[in-house]
């Protein structure tokens, strides 16, 4: 491990200034960053510890929506009574993520910024070729072990999957990322790999996530996060879906539908085609299943991850139908 300096920031401005320096990185819960430093992916010259900043860990929920401070812990948000009642998908996405120990340490800001689990990305010592780490160096994953790689949003440069759960729910409900003054829709915050897989977020040096804002909607209130994986807990998604529904006054016709996918794409994946196909219709199981197939339009597999293409629409369909049952 390379030597680095450690700075405990005591104000937001100090943190942003220090983080703007080349080689500097923000340190929140450390559950991603320390891991990446150990495997040689992150080689910070300086760490700027933001966990002592005050006022960034609040969770405010009212009629208009929820604002969650970047330093709020995953575990706290998952357990928050108002989040549970008004944004069940957010709470469910969080408590199905990682482990209890990690959720107690990890922050919401850090969670959005977690990096891919692509094993080649995480092993620079043995696999120098990785376009995400070293633009232009190639991709070691293609032709290798790909069971966990993305089938949606891939490019010739990179097929790495975005592994997080929370962001999937955020994308479904049009959350806004607050970078101090600047605000940006979460769907635009995450970037497709394209030819620049090294650039994952619309965030500039010296910027920092300060909060996440989620508009309060009827669809968010009736929402769920369904995560499928081999192991019951402590595993990233094989495929997941965040879904929210609002019915018309008749209680049957879909007025608003939100669908986003996790575990299958290079970024949290909003499936608007599914939404559009079902809006204005009833929850007829066959129609839902047929519409859910639109979620994987354009999917491309790389061998071992083919099953995700089969699995993802089924997860979407189940999540939608399950929400309908609770009507």
């Amino acid at each position: 491990m390379r030597d680095f300096s450690y700075l405990r920031a005591n104000s937001l401005d100090a943190a942003r200034q220090a983080a703007a320096l080349p080689g500097a990185m923000l340190l929140a819960g450390g559950t991603t960053l320390i891991d990446l430093a150990k495997c040689g992916v992150a080689e910070p010259d300086s760490l700027v510890d933001i966990t002592h900043l005050t006022g960034l860990n609040s969770i405010d929920v009212n009629e208009r929506g929820a604002t969650i401070g970047a330093l709020a812990r995953m575990g706290h948000v998952a357990d928050h009574a108002d989040i549970k009642s008004r944004f069940p998908a957010i709470s469910e996405a969080l408590w199905q993520a990682a482990s209890a120990q990690i959720r107690n340490m990890a922050t919401i800001g850090g969670n959005l910024m977690q990096r891919t689990r692509c094993p080649y990305f995480r092993d620079p010592m043995n696999f120098p070729a990785c376009n995400k780490r070293e633009p232009g160096s190639g991709c070691s994953a293609m032709g290798g072990v790909t069971r966990g790689h993305a089938v949606l949003g891939t490019s010739d440069a990179c097929i790495a999957m975005y592994p997080g759960d929370l962001a999937v729910a955020l994308v479904a409900f049009d959350a806004i990322v607050h970078l101090g003054e600047r605000q940006i829709p979460v769907d635009d915050f995450f970037l497709l790999p394209g030819t620049t897989p090294d650039k994952e977020h619309a965030i500039e040096p010296g910027e920092m996530i300060t909060a996440i804002e989620i508009p309060g909607t009827a669809a968010a209130r009736r929402s769920t996060y369904l995560k499928i994986r081999d192991r019951q807990s402590y595993e990233f998604a094989a495929a997941s879906a965040a879904v929210g529904i609002e019915f018309e006054a008749d209680g049957r016709t879909i007025r608003d539908l939100r669908v986003a996918l996790g575990g299958v794409a290079t970024k949290p994946w909003r499936a608007r085609a599914v939404e559009d196909a079902l809006k204005g219709k009833g929850l007829e199981p066959d129609a839902v299943r047929a519409a859910s197939l639109l979620a994987i339009q354009g999917a491309v597999d790389h061998g071992a991850n083919h099953y995700k293409i089969e699995l993802a629409p089924r997860v979407v369909a189940r999540a939608i139908l399950r929400l309908g049952e609770t009507a």
Partner: peptide, 21 residues
């Protein structure tokens, strides 16, 4: 298969049952 290296040489991805299993 190209390099002969094991790609899940860590306890996040080499799975054993957790309590919930």
């Amino acid at each position: 298969r190209r390099s002969g290296r094991i790609q899940n040489a860590n306890l996040a991805e080499y799975h054993v049952p957790v309590n919930a299993d």
